[in-house]
Amino acid sequence: MKPTAEHHERMAKMTFASVYPHYVNKVEKKGRSKEELHQVIHWLTGFDDSKLQELVAENATFKTFFELANLNPAAELITGMICGYRIEEIDNPLTKQVRYLDKLVDELAKGRKLEKILRN
């Protein structure tokens, strides 16, 4: 499936605060911790816990979230399918970054070892 311009626009306007609780619920339901989730987000974006809470409180959009992020250079190693999209085929940088995050959260929830998730 190829993302449309409308899909890209929707991703840019979606707030991190609206999705973050779903990330937490997803990983905790599968026996992983919020701390592990934060470790994964920190690896991808460089954000510490206080910056994450600040972005949630500010209702930052994903556009703002990733503009402020210091994306890990190894993020390009994140490949595969997520939400019906093949990550490496997404041509919009912001949509690709959001799907990187989705993929990492999914891998964490599926029980993958942190060393593998963090591409060490």
Rank of each mutant, 00 (worst) to 15 (best):
K2T: 14
K2F: 13
E6K: 04
H7N: 11
H8D: 11
K13M: 14
K13N: 13
T15F: 05
A17H: 04
S18T: 15
V19D: 11
Y20G: 05
V24C: 10
V24Q: 14
K26R: 15
K26L: 15
E28S: 07
K29F: 13
K29L: 12
K30D: 05
G31I: 15
R32H: 11
R32Q: 10
R32Y: 12
S33G: 07
E35R: 08
E36D: 11
L37G: 06
H38S: 09
V40M: 06
I41H: 02
G46H: 11
F47E: 06
F47V: 07
D48Y: 11
S50A: 12
K51C: 08
K51L: 15
Q53R: 15
Q53V: 05
E54F: 03
L55N: 00
V56H: 06
A57M: 05
A57V: 01
E58K: 13
A60E: 00
K63C: 03
T64Y: 00
T64P: 02
F65T: 08
F65C: 10
F66I: 04
F66E: 06
L68N: 05
L71R: 10
L71H: 00
N72G: 03
E76H: 04
L77W: 00
I82T: 08
G84F: 12
Y85H: 08
E88F: 02
E88K: 09
I90R: 03
D91L: 07
D91W: 01
D91I: 09
N92H: 05
P93Q: 00
L94N: 01
K96D: 00
V98I: 12
L101W: 06
L101Q: 08
K103W: 05
L104H: 09
D106V: 07
E107K: 10
A109K: 02
K110N: 15
K113T: 06
L118Y: 12
L118N: 03
N120A: 08
